[in-house]
Amino acid sequence: MEDQLTLGGRNFSSRLLTGTGKFASHTLIGPMLAASGSQIITVALRRVDPKAPPQDNILSHIPDTVTLLPNTSGARTAREAVRIAHIAREAGCGDFVKIEVITDMQYLLPDNHETLKATEILAKEGCIVLPYVMPDITISHQLYDAGAAAVMPLGSPIGSNLGLEMKPMIQRIIETSRLPVIVDAGTALWSNHQPVCPPLYLRLLFQPLHLLRVQCGYRLSQNPADHE
C-alpha cells in the first residue's frame, strides 16, 4: 500500500520536505526535487536589494506539481508573520505557509507564543499552517486546537548541524500530538566531513517518522541530486 500523507486536505506520497537556501545555483533545485521525490519545498520572501546582482526567479525552477511552502522568516511578531503570509498568498504561492517567528537572534530560536497567535489568525482565514516551534508538547496541543495542519519542532538550532539535540522532546510530541510532526532544522549530521543522509538517519531514530524537512544535507553538496 502506498504511504500517503494528508496535509491540509492534500495528499502527498513523500514525507520529505526540502528547502531552497544556499544552493550554488537555482538550476540545481529541479534535479534535487526529481532525485529526492520531495513534493513540498520552502521559499522565503525578502526585500529587493537594488545593489545586489540580479537573480533569476527562484519560483521558475520549481515545478507546478510541487507545493510551495513560503516561510515567514524575518518576522519577529505574530503580526509580521501574518503580513508576510498574506503577501505570499496574494503573490500566488497558494495556501500553505510555514510560520517562523524568531526573536532570539543568537541561536534563531522560535517564539512559540507569537507563533501560536499567528497560527490562530491564519488558520481561521483558511491557510494551511505549518508552524516552526521549540519542541514542547503543550504547544503542539495548542497548535492543534488553533487549526495548524502540522507541527514543526526543531531538531537543533538552525544551521547548527548538531543533529537531534531535542530528540526526547520530539519523541514525546510524536507520541502525544494529533498533528503530523515535521522535524525541522539542525538535522544534518556530519561524518568524515560529509553530511550523513538525514532521512536515513532519522528513520533510524524515530519509529514512526512522520515527516522531515531538510536543507543542509542537500544544499551542502555541489550537486544535491547526488544525495539520493
Binding site: G21, R46, R47, V48, S73
Partner: peptide, 10 residues
Amino acid sequence: IELLSFVGGG
C-alpha cells in the same frame, strides 16, 4: 512601496 522577491530559504 515595498519591492519584494522570493528567495531561497528553509
